[in-house]
């Protein structure tokens, strides 16, 4: 099998820092942090990235693929620069999430699950993301935006479409979540 070294070359110290958190005989526990790192580097968990993570952790590539497949926040296919997750679970639905999703689709010109042709936005519907008290709620690249309205969504998308920044949205109600 051909070896993949890209991640190890580019993110050497971060990989070492992650591995250092786990006992050597349990290093498979580092699978999720390494996948986040790979996703950060490549934008998604590419086949090459999954194989490289498997090599780093002495796992079979199928075991890595299985983890990526289980968790919705790992992407197996390329996604837009901004991944917009709209919750349409029960509390959000009671606050009009279904209608809101339709609006998002119209605004972006794509269906949920698709990416805009310019590669800027991916729209997904997701299960509960634990902010029911401020429904409807969305996440843009893991940053929460609460009490969403159609107008707020349009403002947000327009702002993101016009800037070349970091994925930080111009919304005072956002809140970060550091998964690493």
């Amino acid at each position: 099998m051909e070896a993949h070294h890209l991640l190890r070359e580019k993110r050497t110290s971060e990989i070492e820092a992650i591995l250092a958190k786990y006992p050597p005989e349990r290093k498979r526990s580092a699978i999720m942090p390494l996948l986040y790192l790979a996703q950060e580097e490549y934008g998604y968990c590419s086949p090459e990235a999954m194989r490289e993570v498997a090599e780093i952790l002495d796992l079979d590539p199928t075991e890595v693929k299985s983890i990526v497949g289980f968790y919705t926040m790992f992407f197996e296919h390329p996604v837009g620069k901004y991944v917009i997750d709209v919750c349409d679970d029960l509390p959000c639905a009671l606050r009009g999430a279904d209608q809101f999703v339709s609006h998002c689709e119209r605004k972006l010109g794509i269906r949920a699950g698709q990416t805009t042709p310019d590669g800027k936005f991916t729209l997904r519907t997701v299960m509960c993301i634990a902010a029911c008290d401020r429904a409807p709620v969305i996440q843009v690249n893991r940053v929460y935006h609460y009490d969403m309205t159609e107008e707020a969504f349009d403002r947000l998308v327009d702002a993101l479409a016009n800037e070349n920044g970091t994925g930080e949205a111009p919304n005072e109600q956002k809140q970060g979540l550091d998964v690493l």
Binding site: L59, D60, P61, T62, E63, V64, K65, S66, G69, F70
Partner: peptide, 18 residues
């Protein structure tokens, strides 16, 4: 371990990526 589950719920299926 060349067989694993992939995805979940209705989408869950057996895959190999080895």
């Amino acid at each position: 371990p060349v067989l694993q589950f992939h995805d979940r719920g209705r989408g869950m299926e057996i895959v190999t990526f080895s």
